[in-house]
Simulated scan of single mutants.
Amino acid sequence: MDAHGRRAAQARPAPLPALLFLGAVLHALHLLDFRDGLPEVFHPSNRRHRPQAHECRRARELLGFKAVNLVLYVGLPIYLVGFLPWLTGFLVSTAVAGFVLSMVFQLAHTVEDAAFPVPCAITSKLEDEWAIHQVRTTANFATDNKLVSWLVGGLNFQIEHHLFPKISHVHYPAISKIVQQVCAEFDITYNNYKHTRSAIASHVGFLRQMGRTA
């Protein structure tokens, strides 16, 4: 692995345990909602000032929607089918959803061809400017597959998603052709896996590569 992979190699996960862990990502996102939505609770330094009106409103909205979520996805199903059937369905559905969601992002970032640049030891700055950094550290997959593009909401065009996050994904196929032309003109690697299976293979290969790195 070259210098670009040093930071990523520190984790050194084994492929199978790492893939199984992805199923828990949905539960982690639920917890992060509370951390980010209620900073005055999770970050003591924020308690020094009186909460502003918009912070209180945000906290009420977060807690309100979480309460609705608990009623619809926990309370009501338990009432209708019982605790054990609900628990089984809940664990299976969230594990599958979490695995699929996280795999989409893994295939777009943690693959063998994506770069993992580290800042200069002297200046603490990255060598590439912003746009080049986005291209080199991400990867596209199955961009010719309309079904995949629809299922993942255009996130298989991850390079374009990073470069133009506020543009609708329906325009990514056309934009990607322009981006590829510009990358070719300036000799910048444009990472694109033709099929989802090839991106998955590259991700697993990347995990194995990190596991072998001392």
Rank of each mutant, 00 (worst) to 15 (best):
L31T: 11
N140P: 08
L163P: 09
D2A: 00
L84C: 03
L107Q: 06
A8N: 00
A59Q: 07
H162I: 12
N69A: 11
R57H: 12
I167T: 14
G205S: 11
V74C: 14
V148C: 03
P165R: 01
D33S: 14
T138I: 01
V152K: 03
I78W: 04
V96N: 02
H43P: 03
A214P: 12
S45R: 09
N145L: 01
L72M: 09
I167K: 00
N191A: 10
P15Y: 05
A108V: 12
Y190S: 01
H162F: 05
H109S: 03
A142L: 01
L101G: 15
G23R: 02
L87P: 09
A199W: 12
P165N: 01
R57V: 15
V104Y: 06
A184Y: 13
M1P: 08
L76F: 09
I200T: 06
E185D: 11
L76W: 13
T137M: 05
P39A: 04
Y73I: 08
L19F: 12
L22K: 07
E112M: 11
L151P: 05
L155C: 05
A142Q: 05
R136M: 06
P39T: 04
R48A: 13
R48M: 10
V135L: 09
A14M: 10
P165I: 01
V96H: 00
S198I: 07
Y73S: 07
M210F: 05
K125W: 07
F105V: 11
R47F: 10
M1A: 08
T137P: 10
V118F: 00
R60P: 12
P44H: 06
K66F: 11
Q181G: 15
V111F: 04
A28S: 12
V182D: 02
V81T: 10
D36G: 06
P44L: 07
D113A: 08
E61F: 15
K125I: 03
Y172S: 02
T137C: 06
S176H: 09
A3F: 05
C56K: 12
H49P: 07
I200C: 10
Y73T: 08
F116G: 14
L72Q: 03
V74Q: 02
D2C: 00
T110A: 13
V25T: 12
F99E: 04
P77K: 01
N145D: 14
S102C: 13
A97L: 12
F90S: 03
R197S: 15
K194V: 14
